Simulated scan of single mutants.
Amino acid sequence: MEQQTWTATVVEHHRLRKDLAVVRLIGEPVPFRAGQYVDVTVPQFPNLPRRLSPALPPSLDGKLEFHVRTVPGGWVSRHIVENTTPGDRWQISSPRGELAVDENGPTVVMVAGGTGLAPLRSIILDLTQVPNPPQVYLFVGGRTVQDLYASDMLWVLTQQLPWLTTVPVVEDITGPADSDEWYDRIVAQVGPIDFHEDDLLEGTLAQVVPEHGAFVDHQVLVCGSPAMVQSTRERLIATGTPAESIRTDPV
Rank of each mutant, 00 (worst) to 15 (best):
G141M: 04
D172I: 01
Q189W: 01
P106D: 00
F215P: 07
W155N: 14
I124W: 11
I193A: 07
G116H: 04
P119Y: 03
C223D: 14
C223F: 14
M153L: 14
A214L: 10
T165W: 09
T144K: 04
E181F: 02
G97E: 01
V108S: 05
G175L: 08
G113H: 00
A177R: 05
T144Y: 11
S151C: 08
A118V: 04
Y149F: 11
V190I: 12
D172R: 10
P168N: 01
Q189I: 01
L154E: 03
D194E: 06
A214Q: 09
P134W: 12
V111H: 01
M153F: 05
T158Y: 00
L200Y: 15
E197W: 07
G105Y: 02
Q207G: 11
L127G: 08
P106C: 00
E181T: 06
N104V: 00
T165M: 09
C223V: 13
V109G: 00
D178V: 09
V209S: 03
G141R: 06
L125I: 10
D217A: 13
P210W: 00
D152C: 02
F139S: 09
S179M: 03
L161I: 13
D217G: 07
T115L: 08
V170C: 11
V169G: 12
V156A: 12
L164K: 10
I173W: 10
Q207K: 14
T165Q: 15
Q146L: 02
E181K: 03
F139T: 12
P210L: 04
W163K: 04
L205K: 06
P176I: 11
G97Y: 07
A188E: 08
T165H: 13
T158F: 00
I123A: 14
G113S: 07
D217R: 14
D147V: 00
P162S: 10
V167M: 07
G142F: 02
G203F: 03
Y137L: 11
I193L: 08
Q189T: 01
I186A: 15
D172E: 11
D198N: 09
V208H: 01
L148Q: 06
L161F: 13
L125F: 14
V187F: 05
Q159R: 15
L201Y: 08
P133L: 15
T165N: 12
A177D: 12
T165G: 07
L99M: 04
H218Y: 12
D199F: 02
Q129F: 06
V109F: 03
P133Y: 14
S122M: 06
Q160E: 15
